[in-house]
Protein backbone atom coordinates (compact mmCIF):
# COMPACT_ATOMS: atom_id res chain seq x y z
CA UNK A 1 0.00 0.00 0.00
CA UNK A 2 2.76 2.45 0.89
CA UNK A 3 5.09 2.18 -2.07
CA UNK A 4 7.13 4.52 -4.16
CA UNK A 5 5.22 3.79 -7.31
CA UNK A 6 7.18 5.97 -9.66
CA UNK A 7 10.72 5.53 -8.35
CA UNK A 8 11.83 2.35 -10.07
CA UNK A 9 11.71 3.39 -13.70
CA UNK A 10 14.61 3.92 -16.04
CA UNK A 11 14.35 7.05 -18.11
CA UNK A 12 16.22 10.24 -18.79
CA UNK A 13 14.53 11.83 -15.78
CA UNK A 14 15.14 8.89 -13.47
CA UNK A 15 18.87 9.11 -14.20
CA UNK A 16 19.15 12.83 -13.45
CA UNK A 17 20.94 14.00 -10.32
CA UNK A 18 18.37 14.19 -7.46
CA UNK A 19 19.75 17.58 -6.39
CA UNK A 20 18.96 19.04 -9.81
CA UNK A 21 15.46 17.58 -9.68
CA UNK A 22 14.71 18.96 -6.22
CA UNK A 23 15.86 22.48 -7.07
CA UNK A 24 14.02 22.55 -10.39
CA UNK A 25 10.80 21.20 -8.84
CA UNK A 26 10.96 23.73 -6.00
CA UNK A 27 11.55 26.69 -8.32
CA UNK A 28 8.87 25.56 -10.75
CA UNK A 29 6.28 25.06 -7.97
CA UNK A 30 7.04 28.49 -6.53
CA UNK A 31 6.73 30.34 -9.84
CA UNK A 32 3.51 28.56 -10.76
CA UNK A 33 2.03 29.03 -7.28
CA UNK A 34 2.51 32.81 -7.36
CA UNK A 35 1.50 33.36 -10.99
CA UNK A 36 -2.02 34.30 -11.91
CA UNK A 37 -2.21 34.44 -15.69
CA UNK A 38 -3.43 31.84 -18.13
CA UNK A 39 -0.51 32.50 -20.44
CA UNK A 40 1.79 31.24 -17.67
CA UNK A 41 -0.38 28.46 -16.31
CA UNK A 42 -1.20 26.75 -19.60
CA UNK A 43 2.46 26.46 -20.70
CA UNK A 44 3.30 25.32 -17.16
CA UNK A 45 0.83 22.44 -17.41
CA UNK A 46 2.17 21.55 -20.86
CA UNK A 47 5.74 21.55 -19.53
CA UNK A 48 4.58 19.27 -16.73
CA UNK A 49 3.03 16.86 -19.21
CA UNK A 50 6.21 16.87 -21.34
CA UNK A 51 8.24 16.00 -18.24
CA UNK A 52 5.78 13.23 -17.43
CA UNK A 53 6.26 11.81 -20.92
CA UNK A 54 10.05 12.00 -20.55
CA UNK A 55 9.86 10.20 -17.22
CA UNK A 56 7.76 7.41 -18.77
CA UNK A 57 5.31 7.29 -15.85
CA UNK A 58 2.40 4.94 -16.64
CA UNK A 59 -0.59 7.12 -17.54
CA UNK A 60 -3.05 5.01 -15.60
CA UNK A 61 -1.09 5.31 -12.36
CA UNK A 62 -0.71 9.03 -12.95
CA UNK A 63 -4.47 9.46 -13.15
CA UNK A 64 -4.97 7.36 -10.04
CA UNK A 65 -2.77 9.89 -8.23
CA UNK A 66 -4.46 12.94 -9.68
CA UNK A 67 -7.93 11.87 -8.49
CA UNK A 68 -7.45 12.47 -4.74
CA UNK A 69 -5.44 15.63 -5.45
CA UNK A 70 -8.37 17.06 -7.34
CA UNK A 71 -10.85 16.18 -4.59
CA UNK A 72 -10.08 19.41 -2.76
CA UNK A 73 -10.21 21.33 -6.04
CA UNK A 74 -13.68 19.95 -6.83
CA UNK A 75 -14.75 20.99 -3.33
CA UNK A 76 -13.61 24.55 -4.13
CA UNK A 77 -15.46 24.44 -7.48
CA UNK A 78 -18.68 24.05 -5.48
CA UNK A 79 -18.11 27.48 -3.96
CA UNK A 80 -15.81 29.70 -5.96
CA UNK A 81 -17.95 30.35 -9.05
CA UNK A 82 -20.74 31.65 -6.83
CA UNK A 83 -18.80 33.64 -4.28
CA UNK A 84 -16.82 35.92 -6.59
CA UNK A 85 -18.26 39.30 -7.53
CA UNK A 86 -18.43 40.06 -11.23
CA UNK A 87 -20.27 39.48 -14.50
CA UNK A 88 -23.05 36.92 -14.06
CA UNK A 89 -22.56 33.82 -16.18
CA UNK A 90 -25.40 31.49 -15.26
CA UNK A 91 -27.73 30.96 -12.34
CA UNK A 92 -28.72 27.90 -10.34
CA UNK A 93 -31.80 28.84 -8.38
CA UNK A 94 -30.89 31.87 -6.25
CA UNK A 95 -27.14 31.37 -6.80
CA UNK A 96 -25.45 33.32 -9.54
CA UNK A 97 -22.15 32.13 -10.97
CA UNK A 98 -19.80 34.82 -12.21
CA UNK A 99 -17.23 34.85 -14.97
CA UNK A 100 -14.54 35.89 -12.51
CA UNK A 101 -15.40 33.04 -10.17
CA UNK A 102 -15.19 30.46 -12.93
CA UNK A 103 -11.90 31.95 -14.13
CA UNK A 104 -10.46 31.83 -10.65
CA UNK A 105 -11.50 28.23 -10.11
CA UNK A 106 -10.01 27.30 -13.50
CA UNK A 107 -6.76 29.03 -12.59
CA UNK A 108 -6.54 27.09 -9.35
CA UNK A 109 -7.25 23.82 -11.14
CA UNK A 110 -4.52 24.49 -13.72
CA UNK A 111 -2.00 25.58 -11.10
CA UNK A 112 -2.63 22.66 -8.82
CA UNK A 113 -2.39 20.06 -11.55
CA UNK A 114 0.68 21.61 -13.17
CA UNK A 115 2.54 21.55 -9.85
CA UNK A 116 1.49 18.03 -8.93
CA UNK A 117 2.37 16.66 -12.35
CA UNK A 118 5.87 18.15 -12.12
CA UNK A 119 6.20 16.84 -8.57
CA UNK A 120 5.38 13.34 -9.79
CA UNK A 121 7.68 13.59 -12.81
CA UNK A 122 10.70 14.96 -10.96
CA UNK A 123 10.49 14.18 -7.25
CA UNK A 124 8.33 11.06 -6.98
CA UNK A 125 10.55 9.49 -9.64
CA UNK A 126 13.47 9.57 -7.19
CA UNK A 127 14.00 6.86 -4.57
CA UNK A 128 13.35 8.30 -1.09
CA UNK A 129 16.83 7.43 0.15
CA UNK A 130 18.46 9.25 -2.75
CA UNK A 131 16.23 12.24 -1.95
CA UNK A 132 17.31 12.17 1.67
CA UNK A 133 20.98 12.26 0.74
CA UNK A 134 20.30 14.97 -1.81
CA UNK A 135 18.59 17.05 0.90
CA UNK A 136 21.67 16.56 3.04
CA UNK A 137 23.89 17.78 0.20
CA UNK A 138 21.58 20.78 -0.17
CA UNK A 139 22.40 21.79 3.41
CA UNK A 140 19.10 20.81 5.00
CA UNK A 141 19.83 20.42 8.76
CA UNK A 142 21.17 17.00 9.66
CA UNK A 143 18.52 16.32 12.26
CA UNK A 144 15.69 16.77 9.76
CA UNK A 145 17.37 14.48 7.25
CA UNK A 146 17.87 11.80 9.92
CA UNK A 147 14.29 12.14 11.07
CA UNK A 148 13.22 11.81 7.43
CA UNK A 149 15.21 8.59 7.02
CA UNK A 150 13.94 7.04 10.21
CA UNK A 151 10.33 7.95 9.60
CA UNK A 152 10.42 6.63 6.06
CA UNK A 153 12.19 3.43 7.07
CA UNK A 154 9.75 2.66 9.87
CA UNK A 155 6.54 3.60 8.08
CA UNK A 156 6.71 0.22 6.41
CA UNK A 157 7.49 -1.62 9.62
CA UNK A 158 4.67 0.13 11.49
CA UNK A 159 2.30 -0.50 8.61
CA UNK A 160 3.03 -4.22 8.82
CA UNK A 161 2.37 -4.09 12.58
CA UNK A 162 -0.86 -2.27 11.86
CA UNK A 163 -1.98 -4.92 9.36
CA UNK A 164 -1.18 -7.64 11.90
CA UNK A 165 -3.33 -5.90 14.53
CA UNK A 166 -6.15 -5.41 12.04
CA UNK A 167 -5.98 -9.09 11.13
CA UNK A 168 -6.21 -10.03 14.79
CA UNK A 169 -9.28 -7.79 15.07
CA UNK A 170 -10.91 -9.35 12.02
CA UNK A 171 -10.28 -12.87 13.31
CA UNK A 172 -12.22 -11.85 16.41
CA UNK A 173 -15.07 -10.71 14.16
CA UNK A 174 -14.62 -6.98 14.60
CA UNK A 175 -16.87 -4.98 12.29
CA UNK A 176 -16.51 -1.21 12.33
CA UNK A 177 -19.76 0.69 12.82
CA UNK A 178 -20.84 3.97 14.38
CA UNK A 179 -20.78 3.00 18.05
CA UNK A 180 -18.72 3.36 21.20
CA UNK A 181 -17.27 -0.12 20.91
CA UNK A 182 -15.78 0.69 17.50
CA UNK A 183 -14.24 3.95 18.66
CA UNK A 184 -12.78 2.37 21.76
CA UNK A 185 -11.30 -0.44 19.69
CA UNK A 186 -9.71 2.03 17.28
CA UNK A 187 -8.31 4.01 20.20
CA UNK A 188 -6.69 0.84 21.56
CA UNK A 189 -5.39 0.10 18.07
CA UNK A 190 -3.68 3.51 17.93
CA UNK A 191 -2.38 3.07 21.47
CA UNK A 192 -0.98 -0.36 20.66
CA UNK A 193 0.76 1.06 17.56
CA UNK A 194 2.40 3.73 19.70
CA UNK A 195 3.47 1.17 22.31
CA UNK A 196 4.96 -1.09 19.66
CA UNK A 197 6.75 1.84 18.04
CA UNK A 198 8.20 2.90 21.39
CA UNK A 199 9.52 -0.56 22.17
CA UNK A 200 10.99 -0.97 18.74
CA UNK A 201 12.65 2.43 18.97
CA UNK A 202 14.48 1.36 22.11
CA UNK A 203 15.75 -1.83 20.49
CA UNK A 204 16.74 -0.07 17.27
CA UNK A 205 18.66 2.62 19.11
CA UNK A 206 20.55 0.10 21.22
CA UNK A 207 21.40 -1.94 18.13
CA UNK A 208 22.69 1.22 16.46
CA UNK A 209 24.85 2.05 19.48
CA UNK A 210 26.32 -1.47 19.36
CA UNK A 211 27.36 -0.79 15.78
CA UNK A 212 29.08 2.46 16.67
CA UNK A 213 26.39 5.04 15.79
CA UNK A 214 27.61 8.56 16.55
CA UNK A 215 24.88 10.69 15.04
CA UNK A 216 25.99 10.45 11.42
CA UNK A 217 24.58 8.52 8.50
CA UNK A 218 26.89 7.75 5.59
CA UNK A 219 25.87 7.49 1.98
CA UNK A 220 27.49 4.78 -0.10
CA UNK A 221 26.70 6.46 -3.38
CA UNK A 222 28.29 9.76 -4.29
CA UNK A 223 26.42 12.24 -6.41
CA UNK A 224 28.33 13.61 -9.34
CA UNK A 225 27.03 16.17 -11.78
CA UNK A 226 27.32 14.80 -15.29
CA UNK A 227 27.08 16.98 -18.37
CA UNK A 228 23.49 15.80 -18.96
CA UNK A 229 22.58 17.05 -15.47
CA UNK A 230 24.11 20.45 -16.10
CA UNK A 231 22.46 20.77 -19.52
CA UNK A 232 19.00 19.81 -18.27
CA UNK A 233 19.43 22.07 -15.24
CA UNK A 234 20.23 25.08 -17.42
CA UNK A 235 17.44 24.18 -19.84
CA UNK A 236 14.85 23.93 -17.06
CA UNK A 237 16.10 27.14 -15.45
CA UNK A 238 15.65 28.89 -18.79
CA UNK A 239 12.09 27.56 -19.08
CA UNK A 240 11.24 28.66 -15.54
CA UNK A 241 12.76 32.07 -16.19
CA UNK A 242 10.64 32.26 -19.33
CA UNK A 243 7.52 31.59 -17.24
CA UNK A 244 8.56 34.26 -14.77
CA UNK A 245 9.02 36.78 -17.59
CA UNK A 246 5.59 35.92 -19.01
CA UNK A 247 4.08 36.67 -15.65
Amino acid sequence: MIVEEFADGDSLIHRLDPRVKIIVAALFSTIVAVSDRFRVLLPALIIGLILIMLSAVPVKKLFMRLVPVNGFIIFLWLFLPFTFDGEPLFAVGPLVATNEGVYHATRITLKSNAIVVVLIALVASTPVFALGHALHELRIPNKIVHLFFFTYRYIHVMHREYLRLVNAMKIRNFRPATNIHTYRTFAYLVGMLLVKSHERAKRVYNAMLCRGFRGRLYSLSRFSLKSIDVISFILMLAVILGLAVLE
Binding site: L147, F150, T151, Y154, M158, L194, S197
Partner: peptide, 8 residues
Protein backbone atom coordinates in the same frame (compact mmCIF):
# COMPACT_ATOMS: atom_id res chain seq x y z
CA UNK B 1 12.50 7.33 18.85
CA UNK B 2 10.85 10.41 17.38
CA UNK B 3 11.25 9.03 13.86
CA UNK B 4 9.63 5.71 14.69
CA UNK B 5 6.91 7.47 16.65
CA UNK B 6 6.15 9.72 13.68
CA UNK B 7 6.03 6.63 11.49
CA UNK B 8 3.42 5.20 13.87
Amino acid sequence: SVGILSAA
